[in-house]
Amino acid sequence: MAAEEGKVDPMKQFTIEPILGSDWQLADGINIAFTNSALWMAITAILVWVFVAGGMKRALVPGRWQMAVESMTGFIDDLLEANVGKGGRKYVPYIFTLFMFILFGNLLGLVPVGLIPGIHAFTFTSHFTVTGVLAIMSFAIVLIVGFWKHGLHFFSLFVPAGTPLPMVLFIAPIELVSFMVRPFSLALRLFVAMMAGHVLLKVLASFVIAGGSGGIGTGVLVGVPSFILMVAISALEILVAGIQAYVFALLTSLYINDAENLH
């Protein structure tokens, strides 16, 4: 796995390494070592907290920081208002946390802290164990709210309004499958998008190194264009980081809408 001389392993960045307590156990056989992944989750949590805490002045005329925080909460508030309606306000804390946690996690993975020797950025959203847990949480909220509010009537979600009776037999199983696929699509979308971008950047980085060490000709011909492409793709990745966080929050709110306002 380790990078050989002049070679970049594009997958090494996703390796989880214990930092502390590699023998910590929650119960027998359940290891909870504090890994580099956990460290970046902690950094994300702290930065989200710092960011939002900076907007807690609660001034009538907001400053820049307060304005930034209020525009983020207002963004999530509007998102839920538009997709769920008035009842959507009680989900703002969850969706906001979800959005900010994913957004900061995505963006932190792009910060070039690798320039400092011995430190490696880690994108925990590029692990489906993490995105899976987030997706299952969102899906669980949908199920709990749905059955809590509508009871067994929630199953009518699988029968779209106005379906003729004979068609129900065919449509209900399809709807059920599409419903059950939701947490997987939610988790995989984020995981794949984040991983693909980082792999692409590392592959291009290996081109830059290989091209540079291959001589001046390949350096100019391969290395320089690859480097320019890396810069462009880094910009694109920042966009993707925001979009994927938004998509996760948007889809979660749409699924919550199904449970909140059953047709």
């Binding site: 929650l26 909870i32 890994t35 993490v130 847990v133």
Partner: peptide, 8 residues
């Protein structure tokens, strides 16, 4: 897995 889920 357990570590990831726990710390998340």
């Amino acid at each position: 897995l357990s570590s990831q889920v726990f710390w998340l």
